[in-house]
């Protein structure tokens, strides 16, 4: 009852937005589709929610074909599009009531499923959705997407434009929903959210670059990575990029993530080189790769 995607391709205005995409989401899995804006995440979501036809390939959601059985899918999935699609001029309760009605159910009938989430916004149930904060809109949109007890939940960039506290709470909610037996496919441009999924697919320019558990993806990073810092960030970056043995140089917060093209790399050599470039307070030490490092290595 999960999702199965095989060889899906899609073009839009002569630009290929999805290239031969295949992967499976297991029943009851929390699966992340990780990639920047324009990678094709939304297009794939729209194909899976029967809003677009694929040009090539087939896909099933909860056992139903996305082309042939679209009516069945529309009854069985919950979909939260990119922007929180709520009626701004309706109150919190009216929004929820409306979505319950069009799915042929009532708030009371499925209250236990949304209770966790809805109690947090219930004190504001008479407030218009347009006047809610980003975090509250997100919770309301999720409640609306869940009100008919879907088997599969599609969340397209649910955490974009939401503050860190709400983001954290949101992921906690997803974990609890998963325990209730719902299969969840979530997309996000934030690499740090990948670690919260059971498995992730890294997507860029319509291509899936890697599919695995977050731990495995990080473990597969081919080279040792070094955190490098010095007193002047700009000079440090330009010097490292001029270094003949560099494999990759990426600023990474207060550090630069550096990999070397040689297998027998010795940090001392780099230290000397940087000193020769008049850099001061140099620090070099090995660090763990992140999903973002993997993403960049694959996208290179």
């Amino acid at each position: 009852m999960g999702i199965s995607i095989s060889n899906i391709s899609k073009s839009y205005k002569n630009v290929k937005t999805l290239h031969d995409i295949s992967f499976d989401v297991k029943p009851n899995e929390l699966f992340g589709l990780i990639g920047p804006d324009g990678a094709g995440k939304t297009t794939l979501f729209r194909i899976l929610t029967t809003l677009l036809f694929p040009d090539e390939g087939t896909a099933t959601v909860a056992g139903f074909d996305v082309v042939g059985d679209y009516k069945e899918i529309r009854k069985n999935v919950g979909y939260m599009p990119g922007r929180f699609s709520l009626y701004q001029d309706l109150t919190v309760e009216e929004n929820l009531n409306f979505f319950a009605t069009i799915f042929g159910t009532t708030i009371d009938e499925n209250y236990d499923l949304i209770k966790d989430i809805y109690v947090q916004i219930e004190p504001f149930k008479d407030r218009r959705a347009g006047k809610l904060s980003g975090g509250m809109k997100q919770k309301l949109a999720l409640s609306c997407a869940l009100i008919h007890k879907p088997k599969v939940l599609f969340l397209d960039e649910p955490t974009t434009g939401v503050d860190p506290v709400s983001r954290k709470e949101f992921w906690e909610m997803l974990k609890r929903l998963q325990q209730k037996g719902i299969t969840i496919l979530v997309s996000t441009p934030y690499m740090d959210e990948a670690a919260l999924c059971d498995r992730v697919a890294l997507i860029q320019d319509g291509n899936i670059m890697e599919i695995d558990t977050p731990e495995a993806i990080v473990k597969h990073y081919p080279k040792p990575i070094y955190n490098v810092r010095a007193h002047n960030m700009y000079q440090l970056i330009t010097s490292l990029k001029d270094y003949e043995f560099n494999h990759s140089v990426y600023p990474f917060g207060e550090f630069v993530h550096y990999t070397d093209s040689r297998t027998d790399f010795k940090p001392m050599e780099l230290q000397h080189y940087l000193e020769s470039k008049n850099l001061k307070n140099i620090e070099i030490h090995e660090t763990d790769a992140t999903i973002e490092d993997t993403f960049m290595e694959l996208a290179k």
Partner: peptide, 13 residues
């Protein structure tokens, strides 16, 4: 514009 049409389309309406 709001994106609610997407949800309506995905609903059994």
């Amino acid at each position: 514009e709001l994106g609610t049409m997407e949800i309506l389309l995905v609903s059994p309406l």
